[in-house]
Every structure is written in structure tokens, then in C-alpha cells.
Design a protein around this nucleic acid. Structure first.
Lengths: 199, 199
DNA sequence: GTAGTTCCGTATCAACCGATACATAAGTAG
DNA sequence: CTACTTATGTATCGGTTGATACGGAACTAC
């Protein structure tokens, strides 16, 4: 049975895609409702709030969309089927490739999407921070697993190595926004991964 | 001869210090004139604009203040009197220490002070970006010098190694804001600097 | 004293912020 | 047809943004 009521006149998914692009480029707070409404197909405020609830809820939905598309480059950190080294290296390389891809805004929405926020944006800041924290923990699990399976020596400083990869990973967003290209980032990953084989 | 006219009733330097703290914590755009006026001694709008010109000019002055105080941790990147390795390592360690110091806001004003900006903040974004670019170039000069003096082999990938240190450096700001402590960051620097001795 | 200079407090500006009210249009259900 | 449901367009809400106008206060110069 078809849904009752007047049908929606704009493409909700297309509007969400457009909102992702805008939030990705500008961040949460500087992106205004007027900009969103315009890029989302010139919809009216009523349509906006009926379809998405609020700016904050839209952002949360956008983060989910990002995580299920471009943002999946970090999913491999949670993969225990491949080698720990491969998980971390591939995460870094995929992130570098994705974040420098000119077909969408530069950098990472999770890192740079809400770094400057006033008091109204606290929930959004915490949302992104919790995702970063999970990635950090996933890196730690991989390093720990590498030690457990003998791929890294028992003397390995797990916290130190984890923090190194984690800090580098979040740094990619600023680097990409500052104009670092994929080739240079890939070579920097060659360098940082050399640590793994040199001890 | 003393200056003519009614004397200023607030401490301009103290106001500037307070503005630095607020911008550092919240970033450029989310920090409002009302917040600034209040923390700067409860001054009036007239006093604010007479003394600092505009919000943007105040921020530029705040950046200068930061660069001449806490922000000096990166100055050592421009020092050609010490060894390249020492210049980079000390920059990283000083940055990690400074950015996790609880006596002031976490992270780095140059990296995180204006990452989310609308069209009005473009000049500010470019100002910070240009500073980051200079740091990146300074790292490159140090790596190049290291190769020149034989501290790194001729086969060194200068671009790759530079990007690695530069990306890690900017990553410290997000890491610190996410709660990384100094000890862990220091150990991560142990790890990343080990590259220098392992080839 | 008076003139000139600089700063201060209050009141206010136009523009924009996120969010709603209200009436109406377009569909389904019976 | 009427009743119900859902989306739409316009007009507007109260609040905040960065920035000014204007008159008066506090100082120096002479």
C-alpha cells in the first residue's frame, strides 16, 4: 500500500548528498540553514524541518552517510582477518587517497567537520570525537595483536606506537586541506610504515 | 610628553591575553564579540573597536601574541645552528608538551584556530595556512640539510620524510584536544624519531 | 579658564541565525 | 463526494551577529 499524503517533491537522498558536501567543505557551524536549503534543491524551511528535524539531526545523518561511503576507509582498522600491519597501512593509504581526492572536499569530515564550535555545537563535537576515539582504540588493538602474534617484538611500546599512528592519521586531514598531494602522503606512509620492518 | 586625551581604563595587554585564551579554546568564528568584550574586562563596543579595529584584526594580533609566546615551540625548525634531527625532534617534543599543558587550552591555535570558517573568515584561514606552510618548508629544509651533511643517506626520500613529520606535527593538535597526554605523545615521538637512527 | 584629544556608556543599526505559524496544495482511504 | 494525511510556500518569530552613532567624561596643552 502506497504511503498516504502529498508526495515529497525533492529527492531526499540527493539533498542529503549535497548537505554532506557542504558540511564537509565548511564544517558544521559556519554552514547556515539558507545555504543548506539552497544546495538541497531550493527547498523551503518547512520542507527542511519536516524531512530532517533540525540542523543538528541533519548533520548526524550526514555523518552516518559519510561513514557508510567515503569514511569507510577506516573500517579496515577493525578487521582482524588481515595482518595488523596491513590493516594500519591500508587505512593510512586509503585515507590519504580519499582525503586528497578532488572529486569532493579535502580532508576528513570526522576530523575537521566540527573543530570550531560554540556551545550549541557541543553534541556534534562529541559525536565526532567519539568516532576518532574508536579509531584510536582500533589502532591500539591492531598493534596489540601484532605483538601477540609475534609480528612486533614483546618490547614494543604499544601506547607509543598507537599514538604515533593515530596522531599521523588525524594529521592527514589538515595536511590534505593544506594542499598535500596523494603522492607525497603515500611516500610519507612509506616512511612511517618502515618502522614496522626495522626492529 | 605624556599622551593627550582621556587615558584607557582597561589593560590592553591583559585584554589581549584573555582574547588569546578564548580564541584558542573556541576558534575564530564561534567566538562572539560579546564573549570577547566580557572576558576582556567588560569593555564597551566602542572601546573594543577603538583599541583593536575589528574582530579580524584582533585575531591577527592574537596570532602574533601566540607566535611570540606559546607558539614559539616551532621556531626551532628554523634554527640551522643545531642538528636537523635535533631541530625536528625538539619541535615535536616541545609542541607535544605545550599543547597538552592544562594551564591553557589544548591543541594548537595555528592548526585548530580557524578550521571551520564561512566566507567571512577566509582571510583568517589563509593566515593560519600560510604559517603552517612555512613550518612545512622549514621541516623540508632541515631534512634536506640532514642529507647534505650526511646525517641522512643520499637515498633519503626528502619529500616523503618531510610530509611524515609535517603531518604528524599538525596531528598533535587534534590528538591533544582528543585527550592524548604528554607522556603518550612523547613516546610516539620516540617511535617516529627512531626512523632517523634505523637506516 | 578654554580648546583639543581620547576614551567610555548607552542605545541601536541592518543582516543573519535557527526555527515556526498558518494557510494551502496534492496525494490516499472510505 | 468527504475525511485524513503529508508536503509546500510565504511570512515571520525572537535572538544574536559584527559594527556604529552620539553624547558625555577625563585627560593634556596653552
Amino acid at each position: 500500500m502506497a504511503r498516504t499524503g502529498r508526495p515529497r517533491e525533492f529527492d531526499r537522498q540527493a539533498a542529503l548528498d549535497a548537505a554532506l558536501t557542504l558540511f564537509w567543505k565548511q564544517g558544521y557551524e559556519p554552514t547556515s540553514l539558507n545555504q543548506l536549503k539552497e544546495i538541497m534543491g531550493g527547498i523551503s524551511p518547512t520542507s527542511f524541518y519536516a524531512a530532517f528535524g533540525s540542523k543538528e539531526k541533519l548533520f548526524e545523518e550526514v555523518v552516518e552517510l559519510y561513514r557508510s561511503t567515503e569514511g569507510r576507509v577506516t573500517d579496515i582498522l577493525f578487521d582482524d582477518e588481515i595482518s595488523p600491519r596491513s590493516a594500519i597501512e591500508r587505512c593510512l593509504r586509503q585515507s590519504a587517497k580519499m582525503q586528497t581526492d578532488p572529486s569532493h572536499p579535502l580532508g576528513c569530515l570526522i576530523v575537521s567537520g566540527a573543530s570550531n564550535c560554540g556551545s550549541t555545537g557541543n553534541r556534534v563535537v562529541e559525536l565526532l570525537k567519539s568516532i576518532r576515539r574508536k579509531n584510536h582504540e582500533a589502532i591500539k588493538s591492531q598493534v596489540r595483536r601484532a605483538v601477540a602474534i609475534g609480528d612486533l617484538p614483546n618490547s614494543t611500546d604499544i601506547e607509543g606506537l598507537t599514538e604515533m599512528f593515530s596522531t599521523f592519521l588525524v594529521g592527514i586531514s589538515t595536511a590534505a586541506r593544506d594542499g598535500a598531494n596523494r603522492a607525497n602522503l603515500d611516500r610519507s606512509i612509506d616512511q612511517i610504515m618502515a618502522l614496522w620492518g626495522k626492529r
